[in-house]
């Protein structure tokens, strides 16, 4: 690895405030004999936007799913906002409260209205009063520009609208970090932009974000840093300029040549 210096400097002078909020240190993940993550080291600073790219099966999704313990990492340490992800159920719940997650397949609850989808978490987890939770939900729907859909059911919305609701739902928990797991992969092409725009607004407002995506345009425009993964390893880390203009690693070059 000759981009060691890149990685180190990137980790230390993170894009945002320079203060680390997520730390993954020597994280391994095994499924039986198969090693999905190999010695992952990554530090994400406050207010930083990190975009993770790589071929499918490279462990990108597994990595961010480890951050909020949807997958359990086998070795290493994961620390979110000073809380270590351990076997302590209180820590797990605390980290999940601080990390909002947006899924590829939206995962809205089809049997609840949009409003109920958004208020469920604040009401159940944060113990917010109903009126306050609904007022906040409406604010968020304004922010993702679909307040008029509040009383509909997810099935009645387009994919793009559903994904924006999913973002609002995650934001309703007032998280410190947002995790995006391929948020536009399940969308029709004409709906990708509305979701990316919402995400960009979010980034502009200073939200810390880890985004797994195939949208290179988004990576180039919004990312503070780009992480390239292949075969469960982090191959190369750098600013978008570094990454797209002068990648160092052969695997990165090959990947970029295949998709660009």
């Amino acid at each position: 690895m000759n981009n060691l210096e890149d990685l180190k400097s990137a980790a230390l002078e993170a894009g945002g405030t320079g203060e680390a909020i997520i730390t993954l240190s020597e994280v391994d993940k095994f499924y039986g004999d198969f090693q999905a993550l190999k010695n992952i080291n990554l530090v994400v600073g406050k207010r930083e936007v990190v975009v993770v790219i790589g071929p499918s099966g490279s462990g990108k999704s597994t990595m961010i799913r480890c951050v909020n313990h949807l997958e359990e990492h086998t070795n290493g340490r994961i620390i979110v906002d000073g809380v270590e992800l351990s076997d302590d159920i209180r820590n797990i719940q605390e980290i999940r409260r601080e990390c909002g997650m947006v899924f590829q397949s939206f995962n809205l609850f089809p049997h609840m209205t949009i409003l109920d989808n958004i208020t469920l978490g604040p009401r159940q987890v944060r113990k917010k009063p109903k009126a306050a939770a609904e007022a906040h939900a409406m604010e968020l729907l304004e922010r993702v520009k679909i307040p008029e859909q509040a009383d509909k059911y997810p099935g009645q919305l387009s994919g793009g609208q559903q994904q924006r609701v999913a973002i609002a739902r995650a934001l309703a928990m007032e998280p410190k970090v947002m995790l995006f797991d391929e948020p536009t992969s399940a969308l029709d092409p004409e709906m990708v932009k509305e979701v990316l725009d919402t995400m960009q607004d979010l980034a502009d407002e200073g939200m810390t974000m880890i985004v797994v995506t195939h949208e290179m345009g988004f990576a180039r425009a919004v990312a503070d840093r780009v992480v390239f993964m292949a075969d469960g390893e982090i191959v190369e880390v750098g600013t978008p300029e570094h990454f797209f203009e002068r990648p160092q690693e052969d695997r990165t070059k090959l990947f970029l040549s295949q998709i660009l």
Partner: peptide
């Protein structure tokens, strides 16, 4: 890769 990223101070104890 053998780099160890800096680990911040922990707010919670190790053993629950």
């Amino acid at each position: 890769m053998s780099v160890t990223a800096p680990i911040p101070e922990l707010r919670t104890e190790q053993k629950p």
